[in-house]
Amino acid sequence: MKRVCNKKIVWLASYPKSGNTWFRVFLANLLDDSDKPSDINKLGISNIASNRDIFDNYAPFYSSDLTYSEIELLRSEVITEMAMEAKKTIYLKIHDAYTFLDGGRAFIPENVTACAIYIIRNPLDVAVSWSRHINKSIDDTIKGMADENYIISQSLKGLKKQLPQRLLSWSKHVESWTQFPHFPVHIIRYEDIKNSTFETFSKAVKILGLKKSSKQIEKAIRFSDIKEMQLQEKESGFKEKPVNAKTFFNAGEIGTWRKYLSEQQINKIIEAHFNIMLKYGYISDEKNKAYKRFGCFAKS
């Protein structure tokens, strides 16, 4: 096997339901540069780093015989091996937080990482979308988002398609990816993708070093429009949708939380994630003052 060791991995990182798949579908369309939209079930770029089959292909043992901690230790080596063999850039979606293993080694192998795109979305909207995705109540979802030991896809009695992923809390997830890596991390706000799609995607394309014209970017944006993704999901389903979720591609509107969250739920989220929400503009200074004064926000 020829090993072409290089910094081959570009991480597409985010907390779940933050626009990662949208970005990935956009990127796949941009790289395909076809005259019709890419098939969402056959995207030309890799799926997700936590896929069990990636692990089982590269590791010398099957994940089904290993404990969670053994898998976590080996996953880093699996990603390195995958990058060493890759002939071109691997765009790899990831929801795991940027954590450190015992001994201080980063879980994400830095020596094979080129850079990361980190997508952040208002946790109030994430809570609504994530609760639908995992088919749990909003209260349970909020609890999970505040839990610093939150691990998804963990099943003690059987196997899941994806390996367990350590998310930490929503705030710690953001902090982990934006503060600790020694490689460049370009932060994108989901709301900026939504409000200024062309500008936001163009900047990301430039940062990724892809030489694409405005026309090509515009076409990829058109082909990855939510309506197109919803249409494809309606016609042929989407293989990444959890069985219990009704659909994967929901409207993805900004501010859905206003319709679905109670005042108490809103306050719980803000209380748990105050500093990060403030830093990324999800609560304003004015609201900050109000929060400090009254300990809560009115539902606006």
Partner: peptide, 27 residues
């Protein structure tokens, strides 16, 4: 046969009737 707890349950049996392949796994 190496079976996970939920497979044994699917087959209408109880995992408690069997020994684990590893102490740390419900297999």
């Amino acid at each position: 046969m190496k079976l996970w707890a939920n497979s044994i349950e699917k087959l209408g049996d109880n995992p408690k009737n069997y020994s684990r392949i590893r102490r740390t796994l419900e297999k």
